[in-house]
């Protein structure tokens, strides 16, 4: 393997200022809320509790779709036009929250959605909604690979880079670009989710 060392170090002024507070990558204050959501979803599935299942699916799905659309199609393009220090400043406050919020709402939506589909008989091949559900699985599958394989690693790498004594502004910019593009793609895919889910609800 060729070991190429490419120095990307910009001046310290390209990154966030040195006197900034340390970023907490996983906001510990948010963990009890996420844990409460996990417990609530588990109880809803274990008890086959119709209202709780629908509540978690609708609330989680609404938040997931709304956040993805807003971040991907509104916030992303704005972020893309900001200077790297401004992006870094915004990300330092925004991304740790996303580390807690997104896995929680995704877990709420998917775990309860599957149970609702099973209870309503939509998983049976004879159901008119079956093909729509398969389409929804595929959309979620693509979004999961993008989010877990590209978006989330870039998000966390940005936070670690910003915690360095001299953050690499160019690297942060590059990772943020990856975040912005993938958030745009998942935002567009959420439009497909909206079409599929409204079809399922009205068949």
């Amino acid at each position: 393997m060729t070991d190429v060392v490419k120095n990307l170090a910009p001046s310290a002024s390209d990154g966030p200022s040195l006197d900034r507070p340390k970023i907490q990558v996983v906001p510990l204050k948010g963990l009890p809320i996420a844990a409460a959501a996990v417990v609530f979803v588990t109880l809803a599935i274990a008890g086959n509790w119709q209202w709780a299942l629908v509540f978690c699916h609708v609330a989680g799905g609404g938040l997931w779709t709304g956040i993805d659309l807003f971040v991907g199609l509104v916030l992303g393009p704005i972020l893309g036009r900001l200077s790297i220090p401004a992006r870094a400043e915004f990300s330092a406050r925004f991304m740790p929250k996303m580390v807690i919020i997104m896995p929680t709402v995704v877990m709420m939506t998917l775990a309860t959605g599957f149970q609702i589909a099973r209870k309503m008989g939509n998983l049976y091949a004879s159901s008119p909604n079956h093909s729509w559900l398969i389409a929804s699985f595929c959309v979620v599958g693509v979004m999961a690979v993008i989010a877990l394989g590209i978006l989330e690693p870039a998000n966390i790498a940005v936070l670690f880079e910003m915690n360095k004594p001299v953050p690499n502004g160019e690297l942060i910019g590059r990772l943020m670009k990856r975040f912005i593009y993938t958030a745009g793609i998942t935002g567009l895919m959420q439009i497909a989710t909206l079409i599929i889910m409204t079809r399922v609800a009205t068949q």
Partner: peptide
């Protein structure tokens, strides 16, 4: 090892690594 550019700041270097991230994403 090829060094493309040196800098007075000794940090923020980027190595070329095998595609571990892509392989694990492929597994996912």
């Amino acid at each position: 090892m090829t060094i493309e550019q040196s800098s007075p700041v000794p940090s923020n270097t980027e190595h070329s690594y095998p595609p571990v991230g892509w392989l694990s994403t492929g597994a996912l």
